[in-house]
C-alpha cells in the first residue's frame, strides 16, 4: 500500500516537473513548479527527512514560487528562436544518456555513509537532540555561516540592482482582518519552530521562512510600506545583523575556547539558541527584502 503511494508520488513529481519545464504559459509553469515543490516535500517526509521537507515547502516551493510569480508578469517574453530540431534532439539524447549514467552510478555502489555513527556518538556533546540542527549549528556551523553570507551577498546585489517595487494589493475589506490573523500566527508558529528545532524538526531557516511569509502578507496588504526610510532601515539592519552576529559569535568562541565556532563546554545549547534566534529574524528580513526589491528613489 505504501509502495503504491510512493510510486504515485514519484510519478506525480516527474509529471508535474515536466509541466513546469515545458508549459507554454508562464503562470502554469510556475504553478506546476510550486506543486512539484510540495509533492517533493511530501516525498521527503516519507523518506524521514521532515526538516528538509519543511524547508522545501516553505522556501523551495513557497518563497521561490512567489518570487517567480512576481517576475513572471514583469519579464519580457523573448521571441522564440527557431532552434534546429537536430540540436534539440541531440540535447534530448544526451540527457537520456546522462540520466542512465546517473542512475547506474547511484545504484551501483552501496553507500556506506561515514557520518551516522559519528553523529550518533557526538550528538550528546552538541547541546541539541535534533541531529540536523546539531549538524547545521554545531558540527558544520561554518557551512551555515557561509550560507548566511550567501544571503547577505544576494541582498547587496538586489540593493545594487534595484527593480521596480511590488505594488500592494488593492485593499479590500477582508485583507486587514486576514493580516490580523495571519501575522500573529506566523510569529507564533515561527517561534514554535525555532524553539522546537533543538529537539524536533524545525530550526532557524524554517522559522525565518514562516516569519517572512507573515512579513510578505503585511507588505502585500499594504500595511507595511517600505517607502518610509525608517522601516526599510530597520528591516535592512535586521537583515545585516544575521551575518554580523554569527561572525561575532564565531570570534567570541575562538577567543573563549581557541576553536572557531567551538562552543564552551556545557553551554552549546544557549549559544545555538541565541544564534538561531538572531538568524530567524535576519533570514525573515532578508527574504522579505529579496522579494520586495530594494527602495528605489525614482527622480521626479
Amino acid at each position: 500500500m505504501t509502495q503504491l503511494f510512493d510510486a504515485l508520488l514519484a510519478v506525480g513529481i516527474v509529471g508535474v516537473a515536466v509541466a513546469a519545464l515545458f508549459a507554454n504559459d508562464r503562470f502554469a509553469a510556475v504553478g506546476a513548479f510550486m506543486v512539484m515543490g510540495f509533492l517533493v516535500a511530501l516525498s521527503w517526509v516519507r523518506l524521514g527527512a521532515p526538516d528538509v521537507a519543511l524547508a522545501e515547502a516553505a522556501i523551495g516551493a513557497g518563497l521561490t514560487g512567489a518570487l517567480l510569480l512576481r517576475s513572471a508578469r514583469r519579464l519580457r517574453v523573448e521571441p522564440k528562436m527557431c532552434q534546429s530540431r537536430w540540436s534539440v534532439a541531440a540535447s534530448g539524447l544526451i540527457s537520456i544518456g546522462f540520466a542512465g549514467l546517473l542512475y547506474a552510478a547511484i545504484t551501483s555502489v552501496p553507500t556506506v555513509p561515514a557520518y551516522p555513527p559519528l553523529v550518533a556518538e557526538r550528538l550528546g556533546e552538541s547541546g541539541v537532540s535534533n541531529p540536523v540542527t546539531a549538524v547545521l549549528l554545531n558540527f558544520r556551523a561554518w557551512d551555515t555561516l557561509l550560507e548566511i553570507a550567501v544571503l547577505f551577498v544576494a541582498l547587496v546585489l538586489v540593493i545594487v540592482v534595484p527593480v521596480s517595487r511590488v505594488r500592494p494589493a488593492p485593499l479590500g475589506e477582508m485583507v486587514v482582518p486576514f493580516a490580523k490573523v495571519v501575522v500573529p500566527l506566523s510569529v507564533l508558529i515561527s517561534g514554535h519552530l525555532l524553539w522546537q528545532g533543538a529537539d524536533a524538526p524545525g530550526g532557524a531557516f524554517q522559522a525565518g521562512a514562516v516569519l517572512a511569509g507573515g512579513g510578505l502578507a503585511l507588505v502585500l496588504a499594504g500595511a507595511m510600506r517600505l517607502k518610509k526610510p525608517l522601516q526599510g532601515g530597520i528591516l535592512r539592519a535586521t537583515a545585516l545583523s544575521g551575518l554580523a552576529v554569527f561572525g561575532a559569535a564565531a570570534v567570541a568562541t575562538a577567543a573563549l575556547t581557541g576553536h572557531l565556532l567551538g562552543y564552551p563546554d556545557g553551554q552549546a545549547k544557549i549559544w545555538i539558541l541565541g544564534i538561531e534566534a538572531v538568524l530567524t529574524l535576519a533570514i525573515a528580513a532578508t527574504l522579505v527584502l529579496l522579494f520586495h526589491g530594494s527602495v528605489r528613489r525614482v527622480p521626479k
Partner: peptide, 15 residues
C-alpha cells in the same frame, strides 16, 4: 590544520 569547532573531519570541517 585546524578542526573548526574542535569537531574532527569528516564530521566537522577542517581548515
Amino acid at each position: 590544520r585546524a578542526d573548526l569547532g574542535d569537531w574532527p573531519a569528516p564530521l566537522g570541517i577542517s581548515l
